[in-house]
Design a protein around this nucleic acid. Structure first.
Lengths: 333, 333
DNA sequence: GGTCATCGTTGCAACGTTGCATGCCACGTT
DNA sequence: AACGTGGCATGCAACGTTGCAACGATGACC
């Protein structure tokens, strides 16, 4: 066990309170006393007890990040940035995997196991906006992704409609005429996929191209395997396509592998555009053209927002923070 | 703020202690009392206070994972598995990024900020074995990777020498004669790279092939960019090669991109083998042949070991746990 | 010379929980 | 009737910290 204030106090011949004053740095302490206390602290290798501070002060210095899965490159990169940002704020980051499970997500809304954390950054997957809204009012919460919760919950995201439109416009601009979209998720309440389809359709409409339901492929999850399956489906049964816009880089990479194996040349026969700009895509062959959300901004804004909630007005109107995105054109389309 | 035992007790008309007994499930409580207390708990939505429990019991239920970076696919996948395993044990997982920085790693050895965690899983990068050994005896610690700390610290890892030998043997078996190794890290104390070179050299020696220093390429880190640089170096200045064994999949993927861009056919002109078996590699084109460490076993064993330390004998002799690996042959070599 | 502000230090209480010991009651045994 | 037993409930103390108010000592001021 580690030394406590009491032991330091005994050793330095002062009261517990005085040691506390030295440790916190504040308050008036005579230089000589401070030095003596400091010496005792060093000798005993005193470290303030986090549990006691937490109990007394109500702050744990912990923030939780709840995401579907850490191993997914997008969430991994995001988690890394959030960890950096948390470190900068002297917070510790606790990571919870929801597995995209509604039950699990719901559980977290009520607070992470016994009020351990000061705040929660949640990237919902299966939870409906309605459920998000009627959450038990517990820890400060910031949502990642667009959530149909305007005015009720803070959330940070790129503008998916615009981003998807940009990506699709790009393909149209390159002369593609049969552009498929991979990544619809009609089974989920989560609005992200819906918004990306919307942007995709808008771009087609602008260009006077008909929206063909056969070109809109739904997936269960956003993994490479789902992209591979979707592409196989398109190649087997589907109509001819000369481009695919995938709602994540993972989907795009899976789709690319299938297409390449089928002997298609990318981008000559098939252009592929992704979404997220994860590192994989940059080193894929061909390198993936993709929508680049400002992930650092997402991390920064999410924690800034959380910080405001934690130490500021909890009842302040909810904020909808939109971070910038760009289209990064590489070799795949 | 949330309800406390006292408030529940008042509402149910019993003592604090009795409520505590109901909450903990143990002890003898009359069915009728239990029901009344339970009702009060539900009405007030009582959740035990983690800080108080931590202070009282000395356990926080938190375990820290310290890795160089979450965004790296290997560590991301590992973190995911550790998170699952932690969940299974009702632990929460706190993630610390060290950035491969010695100072940072050293800081963690002394305990994560004020004894917040019950245990620490550390994947050292820059820290020397000597420093690891003379750590201040604080929280229970398990190291990931081979650490030259036998008998002093618990650690979990694959057998890198054997794994590297297996991989190299495979290339030799396929008739490759000029096999480069990418991933040496002579600037680091961390022994992993050294072990992989050793296995590589062993396999060459077995086959009566000379070890050519020009074929052993050092890197700063294990990112795709480093692999790409190393490959470029080999193609530009270096001698002819017909295979590369990379010490991580990241390196291999970077190397592959450079080779493909240079017009080499993989595996015809150049065979590429990686290490880690991350998902990227499976979906790369061509799919990456690689050493597959049993990552789930690493996660399982690491936490099992930590659990033993936490609730068992802290002075027990350190364990060196070796998890199995296989060679997964795909298209790249 | 007395009152008052200032500086440095201190004791008390409380945060919410649980281990321990003890209390009380009813029942069955001697 | 006295005693022991077991079931159930409770009070006290302590974990380590910090906010608050108060303390004595010192010097300044009127």
């Amino acid at each position: 066990m580690s030394a406590s204030l009491r032991q330091v106090a005994e050793r330095a011949g002062v009261s517990i309170r005085t040691v506390s004053n030295v440790v916190s740095g504040f308050a008036l302490v005579a230089p000589e006393t401070r030095a003596r206390v400091q010496a005792a602290i060093d000798e005993l290798n005193y470290r303030p007890n986090a549990a006691a501070r937490h109990l007394r002060g109500g702050r744990s210095g912990l923030v939780a990040l709840a995401i579907p899965e850490i191993a997914s490159p997008y969430f991994g990169e995001l988690a890394g940035l959030l960890a950096e940002e948390a470190e900068r704020r002297s917070w510790m980051l606790l990571v919870q995997q929801t597995g995209g499970d509604a039950e699990h997500e719901r559980g977290l809304l009520g607070g992470v196991r016994g009020q351990v954390v000061d705040g929660l950054v949640l990237s919902p997957w299966a939870l409906s906006p309605a459920e998000l809204r009627r959450r038990p009012d517990a820890v400060p919460l910031v949502l990642l992704g667009e959530q149909d919760a305007d005015g009720l919950l803070d959330h940070v995201a790129v503008d998916s409609v615009t981003a998807a439109r940009d990506a699709t416009r790009h393909l149209i601009g390159r002369g593609r005429t049969r552009i498929a979209a991979i990544g619809l998720q009609p089974h989920l309440e989560n609005g992200t996929a819906a918004r990306r389809v919307e942007g995709y359709r808008q771009a087609l409409a602008e260009a006077g191209m008909p929206a063909d339901p056969e070109l809109e492929i739904a997936v269960q999850r956003l993994h490479r395997a789902d992209g591979a399956d979707a592409m196989r489906h398109l190649l087997d049964a589907g109509p001819a396509v000369d481009a695919v816009f995938c709602f994540s880089d993972q989907l795009a990479l899976g789709a690319m592998q299938t297409a390449l194996r089928a002997g298609l040349r990318i981008p000559d026969d098939l252009a592929v555009v992704g979404f997220d700009d994860v590192e994989d895509g940059r080193y894929a062959t061909p390198a993936l053209t993709t929508v680049t959300p400002d992930k650092a901004a997402i991390a920064r804004e999410a924690l800034a927002c959380l910080a405001d909630r934690i130490s500021g007005d909890r009842a302040a109107p909810a904020r909808r923070i939109v971070v910038p995105h760009t289209l990064t054109v590489r070799d795949s389309g």
